[in-house]
Amino acid sequence: MATHPRGLTVIPERSAVPPPVHGVLADERTATTDGTVVVRDLVRAYGLGEGDGRVLRGLDLSIAAGEFVAILGRSGSGKSTLLRALAGLDHDVHGTGTIAVPDRVSVVFQDSRLLPWARVLDNVTLGLRGPRVRELGVERLAEVGLAGRERAWPTELSGGEQQRVSLARSLVREPQLLLADEPFGALDALTRIRMHGLLRDLCARHEPAVLLVTHDVDEAIVLADRVIVLDAGRIALHVEVGIDGPRDPADPRFADLRAQLLAALGVPLTERTVS
């Protein structure tokens, strides 16, 4: 952990800051009104981690309203911890920093996380009240291509369909920030490609800021405006995708970017395969 194979980050053996008491979150959490995300000096530590247990080490990040940011990183790089911090789901860690997120935040998990005892439409509108809720739910379901499946049970749907319901559930809340934690990680390759197109269309229409955590370099390039590589709790690389029009893996700019990102992820040239 202390030395990165490519020497990108060198972490001190022992931090000068004493590890914080377990379960103490000393965050400053505010809400932004313009839909931007600002994270400053974010530290997160688990009690039993390596060294001082810190997973995020003074991370700074800004996301503009409507911007699509993808976060890449190896296992344990802290990308999920960052997402959980933004979602306000980290109760069992300790940490400091300031987080400013919009009011309306939706989360899409790797598993679709549908309530098995609720029908599809009830899952989409979970927790919402008001006269137009059902109508909105039906609309969002139609948008993800599941019109007419409102009364189905989640177990009757395929994995891809379940994840589309989960997308509908997050979008019906009209989020200003959409947090997605490897949302397509459990899907097969073909379904994943279709889901990429769907997510791109949905984001173009609803314009939330998106933070997508993923393992998949190609997925990040295809979807994001900006890609961030996280390594050992810090940002190791920060690139604008900047490819106009359809993003074709055969495009040399695509290949360049992929090589750059894989290098930052510490994948040696010999192990790279072009899919």
Binding site: L115, L126, R169
Partner: peptide
């Protein structure tokens, strides 16, 4: 995981019990 979901969609205590 469902408790986590309830937190992210902002369910109230009563709605959490009921749903």
């Amino acid at each position: 995981r469902y408790v986590e979901l309830a937190e992210t969609v902002g369910l109230s205590r009563w709605a959490f019990v009921r749903r």
